[in-house]
Design a protein around this nucleic acid. Structure first.
Lengths: 197, 197, 197, 197
DNA sequence: AATGAATGAGGCTTCATTCAT
DNA sequence: GATGAATGAAGCCTCATTCAT
């Protein structure tokens, strides 16, 4: 074989691409930008991806899948729901911090609203699943109007993602911290009711 | 002074530009698109705006100012806060519906996060003012932690705007309705507490 | 209106494009080549043609149509066929000389054999029509096997076109002259028989 | 000397390259296409050929030489010319069928008119030689104007090659058959005269 | 002021060729 | 010798902007 075996290079490329897409959006990003960031020649990008679109898609899909997977571990436990919630917040915001570029990539794409909605729907479904598990296990009370509940969830999730995506580069950590506090506050009250505590 | 017809044409141009920017984003929109929508020649755009950026900025600034202005009338009244809130929702969502393109223009621009944050901060400040007025007038209880309250407000506002911006073109009205219901639900509980009713 | 009215410029562009396509073939020709030959900027080509393909098609179609039209005047006369034939040769070779680039454009395109066959079929049909008219008017005898006759016509037409297209740039005129003489010789014998003289 | 396996691989490469060049023309063919067809890596092509041009040249030269060689056997016999002619047609069209890709490669290359003319001149010379031999042996009458005769030959040969090269992929065999019939018809008459039969 | 053709920089992508393995 | 990833020049095309009319 020639040179390195290089699925590592593909991964590296995805990672770098994600950074640039996150910074500049799809249209604002050029193949040259990405290649420069990855330290390769522009043409080499096409060794790994059919075109700019495929690279973008792979970038989002793969990152988002990892993101979602990180949430699934939370669904199984039997602990009091307040603990599950705390872990959800911890994991969610840790991931958010790690994948901020990804979230920006997802969030800021006027052209691709479907992609965007799809991704966020996936995320909401995962979170719902965590709550549903807790309800099945009796650690959380059922809600009277599931559709309304789901709508609220979506507004909140969108609010978090969008707020995070828009955070000023200089103070991302601070923003995320205050965001997390706010969300904890928002949810705490409602969950308080729902758990009947 | 420019003749009346000129300023009318400028306004028309802003309006049409807003539609296109809302549909396709900044980079996805060409001067030709806008000119065609406005029924003028591409070159004529430059009679009214220095360049594409200036047009975009004017478009957002002016539309957003109108949006904000529509909220200010709500700050002055002495009615029970539940009523003010209802009017806020009514006005807010009516405007959202009317200015969806604007919101999309604001929301989907990775390059311009500052612009975006600025606009949304303005909006949050207006809404805060409405609440503050109600608190001064005693129709709403004070909050214990204003910073946390402000953070929650921002998450919610972002959530609404982003959800609205991402609504599928075919069913915007439906989405906005369910969004409004969700928000009413979210706020109702907290306000219920806060108003002490 | 802006600048010149410019359907003249389109025609000029077609003409220059034809030269370059004729010299270098479709793939060997770049938009830059054509633009340089026409004295305009590369981007300006796209004012008149959607893309390189459209330019190529227009180039061939329009030139070929003119070519064919020049032959149609020959079909109507009642003179002895030897005279018609002479005029056909005169016109045909004059046009061939004038449109050599076009013929090269038609002839040398591996990718586009259909286009090529189509064009040449059109041409053969025109020539057949001239012969058919002469047969109807009794200035030429009928042929026993029209299909075979048509096949021969096609071989001859292809032979002429291809020979002309392949002529060395330095001595096109000489080649065409000797080609014409050869064709006259080839046809004379057969026509001699067919006319019964 | 290169090992046997090497020269076999080179030959195989030439053969496959010919197919692809014949299908897609010089510019339309990529080294990758050829390598894939030959079942080797793109880089390996450069072990056998300096560059794409050299491969193309070798491809045509070698194939064409074989083609020409197949005609030379016809020049020596003492049979009546009608028989020689029949064998010429048989061999010629059999070879044409076998080497259609080659002929297409030769025919459709606007850039390389010299190459093309050279090849076809070689071919015409071989055919002339066959006729000349027959004339020397008295099985065919001399022609009064050899230059004119040569010109006719060239038109006919070009016509055949070009018609064959342009044949629709779906019906090559049929086209060649009808082409052969046409040529037989064309030549028969003249030869009839020339042989005095 | 309005027009829209013209411009040319810049983006995406292809592909002949090289060269580390 | 073989491989195929890497390279980067070069091609097509878009589009913000200019400017002659």
């Amino acid at each position: 074989m020639a040179r390195k075996s290089d699925s590592a290079k593909r991964a590296m490329l995805v990672e770098k691409a994600l950074e640039v897409f996150g910074d500049r959006g799809f249209r604002g990003t050029t193949i040259k930008h990405i290649a420069a960031r990855a330290g390769i020649a522009p043409g080499s990008v096409y060794t790994y991806f059919k075109d700019k679109n495929a690279l973008f898609r792979s970038t989002l899909d793969e990152g988002w899948d990892d993101f979602l997977a990180s949430l699934d571990e939370l669904a199984a436990s039997r602990e009091p729901f307040a603990r599950t919630l705390e872990r959800l917040l911890a994991t969610g915001f840790a991931e958010l911090s790690k994948r901020l570029a990804l979230v920006r990539g997802i969030v800021f794409e006027a052209d691709r609203r479907d992609l965007l909605r799809g991704k966020i729907d996936e995320l909401c479904r995962r979170i719902e699943r965590i709550f549903a598990a807790a309800r099945r296990q009796g650690t959380l009370r059922p809600v009277p109007d599931p559709a309304a509940w789901r709508a609220m969830l979506r507004v909140t999730v969108n609010g978090i993602l969008f707020s995070a995506a828009a955070a000023p580069p200089g103070n991302v950590a601070g923003e995320l911290r205050s965001l997390k506090a706010a969300v904890r506050g928002m949810v705490a009250a409602r969950i308080g009711e729902e758990t009947g505590i």
